[in-house]
């Protein structure tokens, strides 16, 4: 087992296709293509382009890294399903990495990671040596008790959240796809479970409104 792995990572949990390639422990290519739709069509061709550009074959990969969200349910599944297929066909591990963890990776101070969850909500996770918390889906009005004195806020909604909680903000140490291959590089040899989407909320489904009739034995 090498400690300088070759890992291909990708994420489609937001309105983009992002990917990064680590070759022998060093990130060599990272790409991000913004798109509102079409990620399912674009993902694999983009990965093949990146591999070709780096002169790396599929079989040279030691692991696959994949963003598991939170974010768009369909987008997360696009990447997770592809990662599971690649892992199965290549016989290498697929490492699921939360994008909240990817945001915090590489920052030494305790971090409050945040992502927009729409409808006035945030996905939050606190990375802290003694007071870790989350990930959770939190209403914008309920963020008060997430603050700690030594936290730094990182993520797309960090500016507003930092102002609200009186916390400093910072940029992530690495772009998202690059961060997720770097996270995967720390645990690809020990990963036990296949990547699973981080949905953070139950499927919208309600039992039928009309109750079944009472049955009278005859």
């Amino acid at each position: 087992m090498t400690t300088s792995p070759t890992i291909l990572g990708f994420d489609t949990s937001g309105p983009a296709v992002s990917c990064a390639l680590m070759v022998s422990g060093a990130v060599s290519i990272a790409r991000n293509e913004e798109m509102a739709k079409g990620q399912a069509e674009r993902l694999l061709p983009l990965l093949e382009e990146v591999l070709a550009e780096a002169g790396v074959s599929w079989h040279a990969l030691d692991a696959i890294a994949v963003g598991t969200g939170p974010g768009n349910f369909t987008g997360i599944r696009i990447s997770v399903a592809a990662a599971r297929g690649l892992a199965l066909s290549l016989g290498v591990p697929a490492v699921g990495v939360s994008m909240l963890e990817a945001l915090a990776f590489g920052t030494d101070a305790p971090v409050l990671s945040c992502l927009d969850a729409r409808r006035d909500r945030l996905y939050l996770q606190r990375f802290h040596p003694t007071r870790a918390r989350g990930p959770e889906l939190v209403a914008l009005s309920d963020t008060d008790d997430w603050a700690l004195p030594d936290l730094t806020c990182i993520g797309p909604p960090a500016q507003a959240l930092g102002r609200e909680l009186g916390l400093p903000i910072a940029h992530p140490a690495f772009p998202p796809a690059e961060a997720l291959v770097r996270v995967a590089a720390t645990r690809w040899q020990t990963v036990q479970t296949p990547p699973a989407p981080l949905y953070m909320r139950a499927a919208d489904a309600a039992p039928p409104a009309d109750p079944p009739p009472v049955i009278l034995p005859s």
Binding site: A40, T74, R77, I78, R84, G85, A87, S89
Partner: peptide, 20 residues
């Protein structure tokens, strides 16, 4: 149902890319 179809198609693409 598109969510299910998409899961299958993406898995198959991963299998196809990795196996040739």
């Amino acid at each position: 149902l598109i969510g299910g179809v998409l899961s299958g198609v993406m898995l198959a693409k991963g299998l196809s890319a990795g196996s040739g």
